[in-house]
Write a protein that binds this DNA or RNA. Sequence first.
DNA 1: GCTTGACCTCAAGCGCGGTTGAGGTTCCAG
DNA 2: CTGGAACCTCAACCGCGCTTGAGGTCAAGC
Lengths: 127, 127
Amino acid sequence: MTPDITIGELADRSGVPHSALRFYESQGLIHSRRTAGNQRRYVRATLRRVAFIRAAHHLGIPLSRVGEVLALLPSDGAPTREFWERASQCWSADIDSRIDRLERMRDRFTRCAGCGCLSFDGCALLD
Amino acid sequence: MTPDITIGELADRSGVPHSALRFYESQGLIHSRRTAGNQRRYVRATLRRVAFIRAAHHLGIPLSRVGEVLALLPSDGAPTREFWERASQCWSADIDSRIDRLERMRDRFTRCAGCGCLSFDGCALLD
DNA sequence: GCTTGACCTCAAGCGCGGTTGAGGTTCCAG
DNA sequence: CTGGAACCTCAACCGCGCTTGAGGTCAAGC
């Protein structure tokens, strides 16, 4: 059995500061057991959870939504293939729509730029 | 001469609440003259400024950066074609890079999802 | 045993982009 | 001339995703 890790080790290995880890825990995104002296100990699978959180957050997904998906995952179990697939499907759609929106906006913006159409009731930029 | 407009009219016509307009003014994004009774009056060109601010903000550009570009525009003048073009060029690049980043991340994410690679030092998701 | 660094809790603060509210003034229609 | 809507300022607050700090405890090496 690889031993549980401390918050310092989790911070070092994940690159996420202690404060953020405690914050994630307060939000229910990760979990820990406590030692007799009330210190946190994390199972190693937590490294993956944190990686997942950061990756998702990097994609612009709010922590609350990350939490919803993580709730499907047992706190100390390894992620299943199905879990990753489901999450990926879910967020791919999300990301795709954000990309689409950005592209549409960019196109409108460049189209509007030279034409003086930024009056109001007509400009597509302002839908 | 079309007369200057009040903050209420600006709010109605732009769809932006008074509070936000005053906030924009406090940040130097728009400007007003004052009546004898200290009420704001906006030149009509401000409608365009506000439209521009909202459009840019919708694209995810922080107000501070919007302000930088707006500083190139005389407070009460109509935007020139060159202005729009410069702004558009500047932000197109910005938006393009954000789209690229999103796409790269999505691809990595879907690639990672099934493979269990979310260890740490190797996973491309966490650069 | 003692020191030192890692850990604990709880509360406050930050940056962004505003909103809300109190308390007061101005403008315009009737 | 007056009533009510629209306006004014200033300060406090919101949600998000944390960070910082005060004040105290725990654990491991010498």
